[in-house]
């Protein structure tokens, strides 16, 4: 099997300040990769670089496009990259307010990506939107309500529906469960796990919450000061951490 997404030696500096350095990995279809680390460890920088929002100082990002095979997304023309971001890629923000249009109804939010790629039939768009609301366990009767009237957990589920509606193959998630209370987190994680399995999605999930990684990720990368200090199968890293920093991270999980 060929990787769907390949990151080679990515380095990003902010002036003298190191963002991340020498990160490489391959991601295969259907695989979930967790990136963990403390605040300031470079995980968000890495996510922004590989999702095309920041330009790397060094290194390359390759994506297996539908028509041309493995293509470097850093060398790609901007229209093409933005097209990719609207179709084959999805980006779930930590704060649903960043990923949703708060002044547009739930149906409009889900339909936007469809209209962006040329859907021009109101009935079809609405039906698809309604179907996706059902899939993320939102009440389809609230299709015309604005996201501002939704709770945090519902907003996050709406954001996920909005992102998945064009059938992306790769999803970037930045702390998708941050800011949600524990029971809502559990429900969201359950939903995500089912969707990822069902649709065979490749996911890169950035988080500081090891429980999220344990539940969703197949593979995990531990970052510290901009560098990957340990990587491996999720259970292996979490049960038997080798690097002192990973050991510290695992031992800091709160027990009830």
């Amino acid at each position: 099997m060929n990787p769907i997404f390949s990151v080679r030696d990515i380095t990003k500096f902010y002036g003298n300040q190191k963002g991340c350095e020498g990160v490489s990995f391959d991601l295969y279809p259907g695989e979930v990769l967790g990136i963990v680390g403390e605040s300031g460890s470079g995980k968000s920088t890495l996510l922004n670089v590989i999702s095309g929002q920041l330009e790397p100082d060094q290194g390359d990002v390759l994506f297996d496009t539908r028509h041309a095979g493995m293509v470097s997304t850093t060398a790609m023309a901007e229209p093409e990259r933005r097209m990719l971001a609207r179709t084959d890629w999805a980006y779930v923000h930590q704060n649903p307010r960043d990923g949703l249009r708060m002044a547009v109804s739930a149906g409009g939010n889900i339909g936007e990506r469809l209209m962006n790629i040329g859907a021009r039939h109101y009935g079809d768009i609405r039906e698809t939107a309604s179907g996706w609301m059902g899939r993320v366990e939102l009440d389809t009767g609230r299709i015309d309500d604005r996201p501002s009237t939704f709770s945090g957990g519902m907003q996050q589920r709406l954001q996920i529906a909005r992102n998945l509606v064009t059938g992306p193959r790769l999803i970037f998630m930045d702390e998708p469960t941050g800011g949600l209370d524990l029971s809502v987190q559990a429900r969201l994680l359950d939903l995500l796990r089912n969707l990822v399995r069902e649709l065979g999605l490749a996911v890169i999930i950035v988080t500081h919450d090891l429980a999220v990684v344990r539940m969703l990720a197949h593979r995990v990368m531990v970052m510290q000061r901009g560098q990957v200090v340990e990587s491996g199968l999720a259970d292996q890293v979490l049960d038997d951490p080798q690097h002192p920093y990973s050991q510290l991270l695992v031992s800091s999980i709160l027990q009830v």
């Binding site: 933005r82 547009v104 409009g108 040329g118 109101y122």
Partner: peptide, 18 residues
């Protein structure tokens, strides 16, 4: 510049839905 006009239809969608 990139002819990304889907958003214009979001406005019309909102009109119809309300």
């Amino acid at each position: 510049a990139l002819e990304e006009y889907g958003l214009m239809h979001v406005k019309l969608y909102e009109d119809i839905s309300s």
